[in-house]
């Protein structure tokens, strides 16, 4: 590896580490959250550096963007008294620090021989790519080879949403939207739909896919909702429920149909793989987008029954 590559990697690594320490150590919770968002963006750069553009997209949209929004929203709801009582990490904690250091050293010992080894799954994926129905290996793994993981993951998202929903609604004060922000969101929201759709479509051949697209769509919807350009969204609308549940339902239905028709549970019949995967991805994208939107902005009207 050449020197300037090392300089890049070294700088990125050092920055990430410093940011992580600062996130835990800095006194104000607000600054800690802001630094954490910067930490996420740097991670996205590292993923791109390590040849994982899918992850860079996902990290920037989900890891840094939406997690940051959620953290800031939570910060906004925490009372002033609680903010004052913030306690950062102090370094006087001898035993815990020592324990973590020892663990880190042991783990370094464990990862030491790993760079020279190889994975049996890389050639296996390459072998089966032709049958997978899509051209991009990551999408093939997500929706063909390990579709069951992806289905369960949609259920995890659904479950998180249900869990959040049953907690008592804690509504933040909605400030009046400023005209400039409204104008800019009017421009950005269609753009996010366009780029989301593009990412979804492109996902079958190149980096991109349902999760990245869903996160982008959600970002657009959140912006519109915050500027008051979108009506209140709530679980009590049938179509919202249909959108949220649609991803899992279509996925499960296609999986069971595969078993029924003899191509195996979550298997696709010859020649149908491409269209079926696209169908699943479209529903999954809509479902992810709606769920993430509601997770961030919450419900505005529903009261506990």
């Amino acid at each position: 590896m050449s020197l300037h590559e090392w300089m890049l990697d070294g700088t990125l690594g050092l920055l990430v580490l410093i940011l992580a320490v600062a996130v835990l150590h800095v006194r104000s919770l607000y600054i800690s959250i802001v630094l954490f968002i910067a930490f996420g963006l740097l991670l996205a750069l590292i993923w791109a550096r390590l040849g994982a553009p899918d992850l860079a997209l996902a990290e920037a949209a989900i890891g840094a963007g939406l997690t940051g929004t959620l953290l800031l929203a939570a910060y906004g709801r925490v009372s002033e008294r609680r903010r004052k009582a913030e306690e950062p990490l102090d370094w006087h904690a001898g035993p815990a620090l020592l324990l973590s250091l020892i663990i880190a050293v042991i783990l370094m010992r464990a990862v030491w021989p790993l760079p020279d080894l190889d994975s049996a799954l890389v050639p296996a994926v390459a072998d089966q790519m032709a049958q997978s129905g899509v051209g991009h290996p990551v999408t093939a793994v997500l929706l063909s080879f390990r579709a069951w993981d992806t289905l369960l993951e949609l259920l995890v998202l659904l479950l998180a949403f249900m869990a959040v929903r049953q907690l008592l609604p804690s509504l933040p004060r909605q400030p009046e939207a400023w005209p400039l922000l409204q104008a800019w969101s009017r421009l950005l929201a269609p753009l996010s739909v366009l780029i989301g759709g593009y990412l979804l479509w492109r996902g079958s051949a190149d980096p991109g896919g349902a999760f990245q697209a869903g996160a982008l769509l959600a970002a657009g919807a959140i912006l519109l909702r915050l500027t008051g350009l979108l009506p209140a969204l709530g679980w009590h609308h049938f179509w919202i429920r249909a959108l949220i549940l649609g991803g899992c339902m279509v996925f499960l239905a296609i999986g069971v149909a595969g078993y029924w028709l003899g191509t195996g549970f979550l298997g696709y019949a010859d020649g149908w793989a491409g269209p079926l995967i696209l169908l699943i991805e479209v529903f999954a994208t809509l479902s992810i987008a709606t769920t993430l939107t509601l997770l961030v902005i919450g419900e505005t009207r529903e009261v506990r029954e």
Partner: peptide, 13 residues
């Protein structure tokens, strides 16, 4: 540029 201008205006306000 667009988002920078918007964000700047929001912050100033």
């Amino acid at each position: 540029m667009g988002s920078g201008a918007t964000a700047c205006q929001l912050l100033a306000r």
